[in-house]
Design a protein around this nucleic acid. Structure first.
Length: 513
DNA sequence: AACGGAAACAACCGCCGGTAA
DNA sequence: CTTACCGGCGGTTGTTTCCGT
């Protein structure tokens, strides 16, 4: 760090310091402003500074943030400027409390992606990664204090299905492959997504997509949230392909509606399969400048300022600049009412391969997020406790049965087209998973993955005490519900019940074996 | 009204990957 | 191929606001 703090929030940085700053971009450094000392301000931004920054961006566009200070006279480092712009000054930022849908979506996404705040933000129109992160951290704290599992029960339960899919993915590496599409159908009144031969998909042709990377990140420190990701990335330009939702969907109440049917719309699809496609919503457009085409296709809503002024977003929405969350290879199922459909539907739209959605549970419970404005937290917790108590056994058994009997409707072995992005991604996914595992616990395959941990029984030995530790305040019913039943279920419940103060990290988990 | 705790928000820090020189 | 720079991301911390007592 080349900055030294001085007088509160003014950093005195000598030219020598700046010039000698190496690759460490951790703090504000690298200003090449000529002449002696540069005072870089820290702390809260003033309106005057905001105005300077806005003015700069309007003139020069986003990017080149380190030049902001040079050109605008703003005494802020580039990173600070970028952050300020991204989190506060960008157009079409949505301020205020998260809606219930957004909250549910975040929970769902976190169960699949872990702490990929930026990626979640890319899927939540008008929301920033920082907002989501703050929301999540608050939630973690809250639920930790209440001794509740971080995720709704059924989100955890997805993990066994993920195992199944991962396993199926391995088969792809050697089997025949064929293009796939996604067919949401219905079973028992909920959406079900199935892979279909790609040719079966009507509508605009997708990009000739390829999935470029499926990195597997380290576990979140709280030990939950394995995920993978994969982007539809027809142009190979990672840096510029962030799909900035507020750019894409300004004016959308919930921007994803413009890409996928609204919840209420989807609920009406119960009796009819709906063809989705990996490229849904993203018509091929070879012209990188034709933003309007894409915009009108994705979100035919008037008043698309971002596109009309053509000046916004470092994460410009390029044609094909589609960030597509891909196979986290988990099914989704939640304890909640609307959550059952809505969140799952979200998921199905993003995670094209991640499309096994289980039947809903006929358990009427309240969302822990349902209360407006994030208030009524105690109520939420009480409700969730009740929900767990009432519905958990039922849900667990059903989900477990579905998993164990192979009722999953995603059959990756049927996906055999070598040109299929999903095939590639699935294989890559597996490879990367494997590679990552090797790093951490070479002889304990899969133990990087909480879902595998959940199903591995690693915790069984300690489960009773952990269950006791959290179920105590929640009553005996819950305790009983958490007590190991079938192996898979019990181990899942066990991790769910892992004491918050002692949540093992992944490698530690493997060592526990 | 004062106080304390929790929640929400804002900003900084360090690491990392991509890229150009 | 190496190095430096830039920008993005996620973690963390500090501050402010809200709310219950």
């Amino acid at each position: 760090m080349s900055c030294s703090e001085n007088d509160g929030n003014i950093l005195m940085v000598s030219k020598e310091q700046l010039e000698s700053s190496s690759t460490d971009e951790g703090s504000c450094s690298g200003s090449s402003t000529g002449g002696g000392t540069v005072n870089l301000k820290k702390g809260p931004w003033t309106t005057a500074e905001d105005a300077l920054l806005i003015s700069y961006v309007q003139k020069h566009g986003e990017g080149n943030w380190n030049a902001v200070q040079r050109h605008s006279g703003l005494l802020r480092c580039g990173k600070s400027c970028r952050l300020r712009w991204a989190n506060h000054l960008r157009p079409h930022l949505k301020k205020g409390a998260f809606t219930t849908e957004e909250e549910q979506f975040i929970i769902q996404m976190h169960s699949k992606m872990g702490n990929r705040w930026a990626r979640m933000a890319a899927l939540l129109p008008g929301r920033t990664d920082n907002e989501i992160k703050n929301y999540w951290n608050t939630r973690v704290k809250r639920r930790s204090r209440a001794g509740l599992p971080l995720y709704p029960t059924k989100v955890n339960l997805q993990t066994s299905d993920e195992n199944q899919l991962i396993q199926s993915a391995t088969e792809l590496s050697s089997g025949n492959q064929q293009n796939i599409g996604i067919l949401p159908g219905t079973i028992n009144g909920t959406l079900e997504l199935r892979f279909l031969p790609h040719k079966a998909n009507p509508g605009p042709p997708p990009y000739p997509p390829h999935f470029s990377d499926i990195p597997v990140t380290a576990m979140p420190s709280h030990g939950l949230g394995y995920y993978t990701r994969c982007f539809l990335n027809p142009q190979g330009d990672h840096a510029k392909q962030t799909w900035e939702s507020e750019t894409s969907f300004p004016g959308c109440h919930f921007g994803l509606k413009s890409m996928v049917p609204a919840f209420e719309d989807l609920s009406s699809l119960n009796s009819e399969p709906v063809y989705l496609n990996p490229g849904i919503g993203y018509p091929h457009d070879p012209d990188p400048e034709s933003k309007k085409n894409l915009a009108s296709f994705i979100c035919p809503i008037p008043g698309n300022h971002a596109l009309s002024n053509g000046n916004f977003s470092s994460s410009r929405l390029l044609p094909g600049a589609v960030k597509m969350e891909l196979p986290s290879l988990q099914s989704t199922e939640a304890d909640y009412n609307d959550w059952n459909t809505s969140a799952s539907l979200f998921t199905s739209s993003y995670d094209a391969v991640d499309s096994y959605i289980q039947s809903p549970e006929n358990v009427s419970v309240q969302s822990d997020c349902a209360s407006p404005k994030n208030k009524g937290l105690l109520e939420d917790l009480v409700q969730e406790s009740k929900a767990i108590s009432i519905g958990k056994k039922q849900s667990l058994e059903k989900s477990f049965d579905d998993t164990m009997t192979g009722s999953s409707t995603v059959k990756l072995e049927d996906i055999r087209d070598p040109t299929s992005p999903f095939c590639l991604s699935a294989v890559s996914l597996f490879n990367e998973c494997s590679a990552k595992q090797d790093k951490c616990a070479p002889n304990l395959p899969d133990f990087l993955r909480p879902d595998v941990l959940l199903g591995s029984g690693w915790f069984i030995g300690n489960s009773r005490s952990a269950i006791d530790s959290i179920s105590g305040p929640l009553g005996e019913n819950l305790r009983e519900d958490l007590v190991p039943g079938p192996a898979g279920i019990s181990s899942m419940a066990s991790l769910e019940s892992y004491p918050w103060t002692n949540m093992p990290r992944v490698c530690q988990m493997s060592e526990l074996q």
